[in-house]
Computed example of a mutant assay.
Amino acid sequence: MRIATVGDNCIDYYANLKTGYPGGNPVNVAVYLKRLGVESSYVGFVGNDEYGKILTNALSEKGVDISHVSVKEGSTAVTQVELVDGERVFGDYDEGIMADFDLTEEDIKFLSGHDLIVSGIWGKIHGRLPELKRLGNVIAFDFATKLDDPIKEEAIPYVDYAFFAAEVETDDLLQFMVREKAKGPKIVIVTLGENGSIAYDGRFHRFGIVPCEVRDSMGAGDSYIAGFLKAIMEGYPIQKAMEQGAKNSSVTLAYVGAW
């Protein structure tokens, strides 16, 4: 099994720790998949600065295929983060050269050689999803907390596994999941932090959390996505995939930084 992730990357800079960690949803998912034993690739832009070197070197050391990471003149994206009682608080975001990210035809051919393509709402490839879908690709997409973002309406008809994030289960949230499932996805999944997760494939499935000591919540949702997708692609039922997502999250929650 080979899974490709594509889109945004950044350095998560913790000002209070005076330390930066490589991150970004697709980057994190690629690393977490590799941690689970899945061959993974990452496609995106980095700048020709020190942060770009740090990010590509870190991915390479983790065993992620970076053959389609392009180094561009300019700065690598940076997100300012503060850690407050184990919870990440995001500050300013400098998109850097990722502001101009797009896929080449060679990138699309490369992505299509994988069993699954994973991206998200900040990945800048939502306009490319119709083409990727026409080529027969299976697509997972993380919409995060952006339940009403215009990108969601544009992207979701071409998505097989649609991930969202919220805080608590409500009737409105369940109705939202039903509506989104009707637009095309096979499964709609909502992670609820310490309240577990819900999945809908025509009926609702629920799973709690795997208890652990929380040091930093950065990357917990991305870890869930990686664990869930690995299990689903291996043919496991939804309930088992949710369990695997929660287990993978518990590993990430136990240390500082996404990975």
Rank of each mutant, 00 (worst) to 15 (best):
T104A: 10
D149E: 04
G219K: 05
A165Q: 13
S41F: 06
E105W: 06
G127F: 03
P185W: 02
Y158G: 02
K53S: 10
G23Y: 12
G235T: 03
C212E: 12
L59H: 07
E180Q: 14
C10A: 12
G96Y: 02
L174W: 04
V29K: 11
R215M: 14
A254C: 07
D142R: 10
Y13K: 00
G123A: 10
V64E: 13
I187C: 03
E243R: 01
G86P: 14
A15H: 12
V38S: 11
F204C: 04
D222T: 01
W122A: 04
S67I: 08
V6I: 10
A77T: 01
Y224H: 15
A140R: 04
F101C: 02
D65V: 10
V46S: 05
N195H: 15
G86S: 14
K18N: 11
I139E: 05
V29R: 09
D148Y: 07
I156W: 07
G257H: 10
E131C: 05
P150N: 06
V210M: 02
W122V: 00
F207P: 00
E95H: 06
E234C: 00
G235R: 01
G7C: 06
V38D: 11
D216Y: 06
F45L: 15
G227V: 00
S60K: 15
E180N: 11
K34L: 09
I198C: 05
Y200T: 00
G74M: 08
F110S: 12
F143L: 11
E131Q: 13
L103C: 07
S249M: 02
S223P: 02
K133G: 05
A140F: 03
I187P: 03
V256K: 12
Y32K: 14
K124C: 02
S119M: 00
E87K: 15
G136P: 09
D222P: 04
L174G: 07
A140N: 11
V190A: 06
P185H: 04
G227W: 00
M1A: 10
A155Q: 11
D49K: 13
Q80E: 15
I54S: 09
C10F: 10
V210E: 15
E131R: 12
V46D: 06
V46I: 14
F45R: 09
S40L: 11
F90E: 13
Y161W: 02
T79R: 12
V64M: 07
K230R: 13
E180M: 14
G52L: 08
T191R: 04
H126A: 13
G257R: 08
E131P: 06
L36W: 07
L129F: 09
Q175P: 03
A77C: 12
L132Y: 08
K183E: 13
E73R: 12
